[in-house]
Simulated assay, not measured.
Amino acid sequence: MAGKTYQAKVTYPDGATNIVNLPAATDDGYVLSINHTVKNDSVLVRVYGGAAALRSGTRSLSLVGQSGGKVYFSANVPLNKASASLYLSTANVPTGILQFTLFSPAGNPLNERIVFIENKDNIDLKITSAKKVYDRREKVDLNIEAKDSNGKPVGGNFSVSVMSEAAVPSDEVKENSIFSQLLLSADIKGYIEKPNYYFYNPTNETRANLDILMLTQGLPQVCLEGCYCQPNCRKRL
């Protein structure tokens, strides 16, 4: 409510509490909401305008969606009422972080929201061997089969590392794999606890938690060049 001030009371696991003053409320602004769980191959974008912003008449905002430095969406969002909605197909967007930015009529960035797109574009690897148990120093022959999501063979360069799990125990959930490093950790700031948790055994729960990660750690950063650039830009602070 206008004229009111608000605080958040945080309770930590050890029982300690902390009071945090929240920023002053304002009705002159916009809210960008992205829901990519409504349909598997699309996202629902909603833009809400504050009362003061709407009193000035129809605003022609711009929405841009980009991933990996490539723009996949660019649309005008005329806002003459409390909210505007549009569906955008993500079928042709590669797996990874998709960044949406809402711009003012003057081209100034107003809001940013990132989501993680999971399309079936990963290679399906299958490793088999003639035996399940081998003797010490016995030669091991492995067959590696690589296919795409349609079951067609895929060519490429592959490397294999072999270790004794008895000597070096591993937890796949806690590991930082090539997949989680390139598609997740490299594009958002801060420490990610158990990065492979989101990819090792994907479920509706892990997808929901991944979206929470996008909301909490996928915040805009300031570029050293003063521009509003990609999350993986090397010039960002």
Results as ranks from 00 to 15, higher is better:
residue 53 A to G: 08
residue 26 T to H: 04
residue 29 G to P: 07
residue 35 N to L: 06
residue 50 G to K: 00
residue 26 T to M: 03
residue 55 R to W: 00
residue 55 R to P: 00
residue 59 R to V: 03
residue 24 A to E: 14
residue 38 V to I: 14
residue 64 V to E: 11
residue 22 L to D: 04
residue 23 P to I: 10
residue 59 R to I: 04
residue 42 S to R: 15
residue 46 R to Y: 02
residue 57 G to N: 11
residue 47 V to R: 09
residue 49 G to T: 04
residue 60 S to T: 14
residue 51 A to H: 10
residue 52 A to L: 13
residue 42 S to W: 06
residue 31 V to K: 05
residue 44 L to Y: 09
residue 47 V to G: 09
residue 28 D to A: 13
residue 21 N to M: 12
residue 56 S to V: 13
residue 40 N to E: 10
residue 54 L to H: 07
residue 33 S to H: 01
residue 31 V to S: 05
residue 47 V to P: 11
residue 56 S to T: 14
residue 49 G to N: 09
residue 44 L to G: 10
residue 33 S to E: 01
residue 49 G to H: 05
residue 47 V to L: 08
residue 24 A to D: 10
residue 22 L to T: 04
residue 21 N to Q: 15
residue 25 A to L: 15
residue 21 N to Y: 02
residue 56 S to E: 13
residue 35 N to Y: 07
residue 23 P to V: 10
residue 22 L to W: 04
residue 39 K to A: 10
residue 58 T to N: 12
residue 38 V to P: 03
residue 28 D to E: 12
residue 26 T to L: 02
residue 64 V to W: 05
residue 47 V to D: 06
residue 34 I to R: 02
residue 65 G to V: 12
residue 25 A to W: 05
residue 55 R to G: 12
residue 49 G to Q: 08
residue 42 S to D: 08
residue 50 G to F: 00
residue 35 N to C: 04
residue 53 A to T: 07
residue 25 A to K: 11
residue 29 G to K: 00
residue 30 Y to N: 08
residue 24 A to P: 05
residue 52 A to C: 03
residue 65 G to A: 15
residue 63 L to W: 07
residue 38 V to D: 11
residue 59 R to W: 00
residue 51 A to T: 14
residue 30 Y to L: 02
residue 26 T to N: 15
residue 42 S to E: 12
residue 62 S to R: 15
residue 44 L to W: 11
residue 55 R to H: 05
residue 45 V to Q: 04
residue 65 G to R: 05
residue 32 L to Y: 01
residue 55 R to V: 01
residue 41 D to K: 14
residue 63 L to S: 10
residue 63 L to R: 07
residue 48 Y to G: 01
residue 31 V to G: 00
residue 53 A to S: 15
residue 58 T to W: 04
residue 39 K to M: 09
residue 62 S to E: 08
residue 63 L to Y: 03
residue 54 L to R: 14
residue 38 V to S: 12
residue 61 L to P: 09
residue 34 I to W: 02
residue 59 R to E: 08
residue 65 G to E: 08
residue 46 R to D: 01
residue 38 V to K: 14
residue 51 A to P: 03
residue 65 G to N: 07
residue 34 I to P: 02
residue 43 V to H: 02
residue 53 A to E: 06
residue 49 G to L: 03
residue 44 L to E: 10
residue 53 A to V: 04
residue 31 V to I: 11
residue 56 S to Q: 15
residue 65 G to F: 12
residue 51 A to C: 05
residue 49 G to K: 07
residue 37 T to S: 15
residue 36 H to I: 04
residue 23 P to M: 09
residue 41 D to I: 12
residue 35 N to M: 03
residue 27 D to G: 11
residue 28 D to K: 03
residue 33 S to T: 02
residue 55 R to A: 08
residue 47 V to C: 09
residue 52 A to M: 08
residue 37 T to C: 05
residue 22 L to I: 06
residue 22 L to R: 03
residue 47 V to A: 07
residue 25 A to N: 10
residue 62 S to G: 11
residue 23 P to A: 11
residue 28 D to C: 01
residue 39 K to P: 00
residue 43 V to A: 13
residue 50 G to R: 02
residue 62 S to M: 12
residue 43 V to P: 00
residue 64 V to Q: 13
residue 37 T to P: 05
residue 60 S to H: 14
residue 40 N to A: 14
residue 46 R to G: 01
residue 33 S to G: 02
residue 63 L to D: 04
residue 36 H to W: 07
residue 21 N to P: 02
residue 37 T to N: 14
residue 54 L to K: 09
residue 61 L to C: 11
